[in-house]
Design a protein around this nucleic acid. Structure first.
Length: 504
RNA sequence: GGCCCCAUGGUCAAGCGGUUAAGACACAGCCCUUUCACGGCUGUAACAGGGGUUCGAGUCCCCUUGGGGUCACCA
């Protein structure tokens, strides 16, 4: 009862403490979409409680280091607006924030553990370990370190140390009982202690393993909420044993469900799955990506779907994080992207579309801004722009059958009539713009006593040569200009006449 | 294989013992309309299976099945 009260008091204290989360990537050069979401949630958890978001680089595995990877991390966080409050590039009260630069801080803690009886030196060679592993495998057993070095006497250890024999430091796990912990999303998790291996804390190169460094650094840096992927769920008891051995307060754990591919398998760089930067290159907007992944594994209380980062900060709540893995759905991302495109002002969209338009449209007479207006409601992903505007450059050969449209009630014959009738009307337009073209053409429709489509469909067909185009006859005629429009209409007339004559 | 976790339409998901089981994407149809889009409306579609508990179970418990994670001197 008393203990319970103490714990309770501690919890209250914790609630008053400043919330501190950390994003702790290892610099391997690829921004996995799941990692990004972890960073996002860490940011949201901190910011929604007026806390701090810290960036820490976990580079204790020097073999996996990738040049420039840290810059990718900075760049991505910045692009996404996930501005950290402390980190290697901006410093902070707990610097340094790169684990390789904190190399010397870990060993003393490991030694403290040895003194307390929670860890021990191990001099086993890689060969011996491999042989052990192989043997276990052949017997169909689960390999676990046999504690060979636990029995070493103090003298033996001294001697080996003195002779410079390479060593690691292992955590000594309890062999009986079980360890439970509370996860903010998964609830209580219990694992039998005999499932816990005497994991390595300090590697033979003197650097700590993740398993050790994360505990030391999280404590030293005052991290209150440890947020990470659910793959760490089963090793969390090991970390808690460490916290307990040191007498440190255990942080709040927030394990996140995985993001998987539509077929349920996990996303991997090796299989060529798209990372964050690939999505950007594919024409997706940063804000759309953030919005989408925020909703992959978390849901707001309302039915709102479109969220700015600021709104997410307001709405985010750990309680609504789900436990089951979610599939990354490109279609839905596309939809979000389209939503963001439509929400832009015409000028904003133009700025985004311009690079694509400039590359795709070689016809210098075309007003790109007008094209951009036509495209905004018809674009879901920026990269699809080029495929929609080719007809503006030049009129290519087209199948005359596209003049025939059932719903428009157009045929080769009446298309020819319409085009012929349109020529003098178009020629008579002095001030060539959408309004004048529109008015004149509709006037003609009235005169001819036909439906709009019967005149406009053939014109659009003649001046584009495409069955489907962004914009109708009027907009496109305006874009092409009077001369080019008439030139293309005449080509249409010629080709239709030829075809009809041939048929008779 | 041992251990851990998960399980509502094709996908993302709401739901906290009593609901006609939301909403979104995708799909289909209709409307708008000079094509295509946009927009609007409508529709198809789900509680994995079996046992309990309860007056009553998607909601709680157990089993089965399925999926995922984890078992490194990687994180």
């Amino acid at each position: 009862m008393e203990i319970k009260n103490i714990k309770h008091g501690r919890k209250d204290y914790k609630m008053q403490r400043e919330v501190r989360t950390r994003y702790a990537p290892s610099p391997t050069g690829y921004m996995h979409i799941g990692n990004l979401r972890t960073a996002l949630y860490e940011y949201l958890i901190a910011k929604s409680q007026n806390g701090k978001f810290i960036l820490r680089i976990e580079d204790t595995d020097q073999e996996r280091l990738v040049e420039g990877a840290v810059d990718i991390i900075y760049k991505t966080l910045k692009l996404c607006g996930l501005q950290h409050d402390e980190g290697p590039d901006i410093g902070g009260p707990y610097a340094p924030y790169v684990q390789s630069e904190r190399k010397d801080t870990y060993l003393p803690y490991a030694k403290e553990l040895i003194e307390k009886g929670h860890a021990y030196y191990c001099f086993c060679s890689k060969e011996r370990l491999d042989a052990l592993r192989k043997e276990a495998e052949e017997k169909g057993q689960t390999y676990m370190y046999d504690r060979h070095c636990l029995g070493l006497s103090k003298e033996e250890i001294e001697e080996k140390l003195k002779s410079g024999q390479p060593y690691v430091i292992r955590q000594k796990m309890p062999r009986e009982g079980s360890t439970s912990f509370e996860d903010a999303v998964y609830g209580t998790i219990t694992i039998e202690n005999n499932m816990l291996e005497d994991q390595i804390l300090i590697k033979s190169d003197g650097l700590p393993t993740y398993n050790f460094a994360n505990v030391i650094d999280d404590h030293l840096m005052g991290i209150t909420h440890v947020v990470r992927g659910s793959e760490y769920l089963s090793s969390t008891p090991k970390y808690n044993l460490l916290y307990d051995a040191f007498g440190w307060e255990i942080p709040v754990y927030v394990h996140l469900p995985l993001i998987v591919k539509p077929d349920g398998s996990k996303i991997s760089k090796r299989k060529g799955d798209a990372g964050f930067h690939d999505l950007i290159e594919m024409g997706y907007l940063v804000k759309a990506i953030i919005n989408y992944i925020a909703l992959l594994g978390w849901s707001p209380e309302s039915n709102q779907e479109i969220f700015s980062l600021e709104e997410l900060v307001k709405e985010f709540n750990i309680k609504h994080i789900s436990k089951s893995p979610s599939a990354f759905d490109m279609d839905k991302l596309r939809w979000f992207n389209a939503q963001y495109i439509r929400a832009m002002t015409p000028d904003e969209f133009y700025e985004h579309a311009r690079p694509y338009l400039e590359k795709a449209i070689t016809n210098k007479n075309i007003d790109l801004k007008k094209v951009s207006k036509l495209l905004q409601a018809r674009t879901e992903v920026l990269t699809e722009i080029p495929s929609k505007v080719g007809f503006l450059n030049e009129l290519t050969d087209y199948d005359l059958n596209i003049y025939v449209h059932k719903k428009m009630k157009t045929t080769l014959e009446n298309s020819l009539e319409s085009l012929k009738a349109a020529v003098p009307v178009l020629e008579s337009i002095e001030d060539w713009n959408e309004e004048t073209i529109h008015n004149k053409l509709l006037e003609l429709v009235n005169q001819m006593g036909i439906k709009n489509g019967q005149l406009l469909w053939p014109i659009r067909t003649a001046i584009t040569g495409w069955e489907v185009t962004p914009g109708g006859a009027v907009e496109i005629a305006d874009l092409l200009g009077k001369e080019e429009t008439l030139r293309r209409v005449h080509i249409g007339i010629e080709r239709l006449e030829k075809a009809l004559a041939g048929n008779c």
